[in-house]
Design a protein around this nucleic acid. Sequence first.
DNA 1: TGAAGCTCCTATGTATACATAGAATTCAGG
DNA 2: CCTGAATTCTATGTATACATAGGAGCTTCA
Lengths: 253, 253
Amino acid sequence: MASVYTETPKAGITGSTDAAAAAAAAAAVPPVAVVTASERAYRQLRDEILDGVLAPGAGLLEVEQSDRIGVSRTPLRAAIARLIADGLVAGRAGRGFMVTEMSVDSIHELYELRRALEEHAARIAATRRDPLVFLELREQFRAAPELLLHGEAGLHRYYALIDDFDDALDAAVGNPFLVAALANVRTHLARIRRLARHNPARLRAAAAEHLLIIEAIVSGDTSLAAHATHVHLHQSLSNVLAALEANPAAPVD
Amino acid sequence: MASVYTETPKAGITGSTDAAAAAAAAAAVPPVAVVTASERAYRQLRDEILDGVLAPGAGLLEVEQSDRIGVSRTPLRAAIARLIADGLVAGRAGRGFMVTEMSVDSIHELYELRRALEEHAARIAATRRDPLVFLELREQFRAAPELLLHGEAGLHRYYALIDDFDDALDAAVGNPFLVAALANVRTHLARIRRLARHNPARLRAAAAEHLLIIEAIVSGDTSLAAHATHVHLHQSLSNVLAALEANPAAPVD
DNA sequence: TGAAGCTCCTATGTATACATAGAATTCAGG
DNA sequence: CCTGAATTCTATGTATACATAGGAGCTTCA
């Protein structure tokens, strides 16, 4: 698709860096910002579901949503079809569609799949990785705890760092099937993260866990990479469940 | 839905007879085959891709396909959207869509994901299985080599048996996320199986490998279940690659 | 003859009108 | 007052007409 940055009307804290990148991309790719209506509808609905703006169980009516987003029913239907494929929306028998629920059971199930995929991915990455990339990541994660002392901006950079790690893992794995499966898991994970965020102690511990995984990958220790990933996911799940226990109410504001 | 057989737009001379038949059918079986047009289009295209009737790399034009299948472009677009989500179809930049290719590399990649998922599933099944189900399956697989001596019909029953095994595995796992990921893998696998079928010796060996997995699951031996699955997948991949080596040409007639 | 530009054409993207099934509501009867 | 059935209403499923982008082919000029 043409432009990567057509949405996010309010982001852009990094300013000039992003602008420069966008400009370079635009120069390289003349067909600017021809994002289709269905793409816009898909991204907006997806973001809103992931952010909890559209709560689990919320009904999605075609006319209502198409009117709200400003596209006709046809592209909106395409968007909903994609969301159904993502598992974020489910069709109700006769009465429209709804945002899928995320029960505690389904969180367990999601993490079970996540374990299978990420442990395997970690093993593979430890074999096929580009050492330089992960050496750089190691430095970043060593400095990560520092980020957590700098408020909201630092938090954002921390999360961006985790995204970088995920990207590096995907690149090292180099397997489109596995990467796609991981992407699907991360989609659902994004809905869960909302519940458990803002826990500095946990984030510091998570950084240390990531660091161990990275060191295992750097040194090519497949077994340690897998086991460290297992431990990390165990701790992550525990944290999520504890957060849910403490705040059983629906996470939507 | 008006009629299930809308494809004859000019029929309708029989009038009352059809109406009576429709009424009788509706009375007898309320949930009558009200398969939507998009569902029909999806299934037909999917089957044709999996069977190789639509060869990898083949172009899919909306008008052409909608005309051929007998639905309008709208439901056909929905069908193609689902196929894209399945990874069976990819959009080409400006020139329509095409059936995705299956290179030797992508076969390796698919089996890498398959290993991750099925080994994990086997472990889980060995823990959560219903013993009776797998004891029954064990009997069936013990008798499986016999099936291979009875021509085409026996072959069909053999493949049906493997489907039963997959279903039992899914049921034992009881994890919608994992089951969905497995289903996706099996979809792509179906395209590969065409290449390597009709090899009685391999099928007999595969039955023995399945038997070992089942026995591990029955006895709750998680480690053996995973390792036996790994071995099975290794042999399966080897067989596929050997078949490809022997017949490098595209399998499509 | 080659290359560059233009035109046409094709195939997707979008909007809208219409058909239809299922749910909710309401009305009638007991 | 409750129950049942018919009706209305709503929301999806489908068809089709129109808009538009991108490429292929042709034409023209050097």
